[in-house]
Amino acid sequence: MSQFIERLPKVELHMHIEGSMEPEMLLQLADKNKITLPYADLDAVKAAYNFADLAAFVDLYIKGTEVVCDAEDFYTITMEYLKKCHQENILHTEIFCDIRTYVDRGYAPEMVIEGIDAGFKAAYQEFGITGGMMPCFIRHLGAEPAMQDLDMLLRFKDKILAIGLAAVEVGFPPSMFTDVFDRVRAEGIPVVAHAGEEGSPDYIWSAIRDIKVDRIDHGVRCLEDAQLVEYLKQKEIPLTVCPCSNVSLNVFERMEDHVLPQMLEAGLKVTVNSDDPAHFGAYLSENLTAVQNHCGVTDQQLLQMQQNAVDASFATPDRKAELHQRLAEI
């Protein structure tokens, strides 16, 4: 890691909390909650983290959700990630979670919301890190469960930064969820959506037109549609790009093939993020290092993307001003 990246104040806007669970934490929580995993020891778990395809990644991710059984567990994994943020000079972070996975297993939504919220409160006291959570609807489950999830989430409105749309993209366009996101926006809650990762630019257009997103998660396929690129540029719609994730999941074969430089050249409001850092072996600093080493991204462009991230965040105006000041001092 370069000295510039090390001292650069950072903001992260696209990270799934279970995706920050390292092998040691997976085993720790499994032992605590008496969950049997199909791994003989730590080495076997680490081997599983070197997955070869999307199916193996999904299986590993699900195993991670199975060992999380109460609010204390969510607090533990949230604090572990936020300690990593402190080490990496991440000053503000906004993380994804979902409640449907846990509610379907008979748990109360409070376990997710209160556990993560307690982690952020502790990290603010200890490290000064700000941020919060963005619950997501699981798109391949359909609109009806999403509406049910919203009914639950509105009880915790004061603890939510935004509501997102995540999971399997192709076949489940944002247009399926127009009614539920109309309600989200009527409640004054910002909207984000995974779009344009595996799905075509049409999925990005749908996120914009049908559910009126405040920012796009991923969005790397926008370059296939010149009109879309121009719209994203003119409206300054942020894109939370996850380079190492994209390579790990074969969106791009190599980091050298990533379109991030072209997105920057097109004037798009790009940010860099880690997505599922424990699973992909790359936290935010490693992602920044990768795009610098393999995509030719300059220090000035890294700085610009952090400025973009501050602008795109759901931090308070005062906090945004503080973060911009920190970036101006580097």
Rank of each mutant, 00 (worst) to 15 (best):
Ser2Tyr: 07
Arg7Ile: 14
His16Phe: 13
Leu27Phe: 06
Pro38Asn: 03
Tyr39Gln: 02
Val45His: 10
Ala48Phe: 05
Ala56Val: 00
Val58Ser: 10
Leu60Asp: 07
Ile62Lys: 15
Lys63Pro: 07
Glu72Lys: 07
Phe74Trp: 12
Phe74Pro: 08
Tyr75Ala: 01
Thr78Arg: 01
Glu80Gly: 10
Tyr81Cys: 07
Glu94Ile: 09
Ile95Ser: 12
Phe96His: 02
Ile99Glu: 00
Tyr102Met: 12
Ile113Leu: 03
Glu114Phe: 15
Gly115Glu: 10
Thr130Val: 04
Met134Phe: 09
Gly142Trp: 02
Ala146Gln: 04
Asp149Asn: 11
Met152Asn: 11
Arg155Ala: 13
Phe156Glu: 03
Leu161Val: 00
Ala162Trp: 07
Ile163Lys: 01
Val168Phe: 09
Val170Trp: 03
His194Met: 05
Ala195Lys: 14
Gly196Glu: 07
Glu197Asn: 08
Glu198Ile: 10
Trp205Arg: 06
Arg215Pro: 08
Gln227Ile: 12
Gln227Lys: 15
Cys244Thr: 10
Ser245Glu: 02
Ser245Tyr: 05
Asp257Lys: 02
Leu260Asn: 05
Lys269Phe: 08
Val272Asn: 09
Asp276Lys: 11
Gly281Arg: 01
Ala282Tyr: 01
Tyr283Gln: 03
Leu284Ala: 11
Leu288Glu: 10
Ala290Glu: 08
His294Asn: 14
Gln301Val: 01
Pro317Tyr: 09
Glu329Ile: 04
